[in-house]
Amino acid sequence: MSGAGPGRPLAHWQHRLAERGVDRQLWLLVPALVFVIALFLYPFFYGLTLSFQPTTGGPFSDYARFFSDSYERGTIWITLRIALPAALLNVLAAVPIAYRMRGRFRGKRLVTTLLVVPITLGTVLTAQGLLNFLGPTGWFNRILLASNLVDEPVRLTHNYWGVFFSLVITGFPFAFLLVLSYLSGIDPTLERAAATLGADWRRRFTRITLPLLMPGLATTFCLTFVLAFSVFPSAVLVGNPAGETRVISLAAYQAAYEQYDYPYASAIAMIMGFVELVIIAVVLAARSRFYTGSTGGKG
């Protein structure tokens, strides 16, 4: 070893930081971090502290106000009564249909494309369509009347069912597409292997496919539930916003934009977020009991 360089110098400080993964490239994260802190975390905590600073009373009085008033408190139950069945129906209906359509067939792309339409249309347009279509003089009731199934028009708008249908129309395609992609992530040779071992289709489905699909179903349920839980426009437009479809997001909106009581609105938003997170946490806890590793498919 000859040469004029110093003997065994410690590595440069940049190297030592870089070894822990900290280097100039992390600057790329900074804009997004600033953004998420300023526009998501800060407002969230601002809302949280605001909810403890009511216009009158002690720090918890807005929460107390919400829970002591049965009209307000009831919005939680109303929301859950709409969102949970809708999310459950969407996921459960999606499973057999996706199971049947998971293979390749002509028109698959067309079916999936058509299914995207209601998602992109969004709840406002769906509400408008439902008012026309399901209304007392709409085509749906006309068909029922013409085929003598009913004697007088069924009331399907401006009540619970209007909101429920709007959630199915937007939520079902969403759930279906998710379930379909989870299903195609399961290696089809697993079922063939089970078949060679003597399992009929029922047991192939219940013993092999369903257990592997369960985590995906749980995730799908969560995402569908989040969509349904925040139902707002359709609850106002096709529901009965003063009564049976006065959902919690509407209560929060009214507090903020009709009563201009921001602390109270924040408190309701916090309660709303909390209820939703509890449901999601329960589902995810159940999900963790299933096998969640690779399902042998591609991707």
Binding site: F40, P43, F44, G47, A265, A269, M272
Partner: peptide
């Protein structure tokens, strides 16, 4: 859901 963080935001 957007409404939850939308109101504080």
């Amino acid at each position: 859901p957007p409404i939850t963080y939308g109101i504080p935001l």
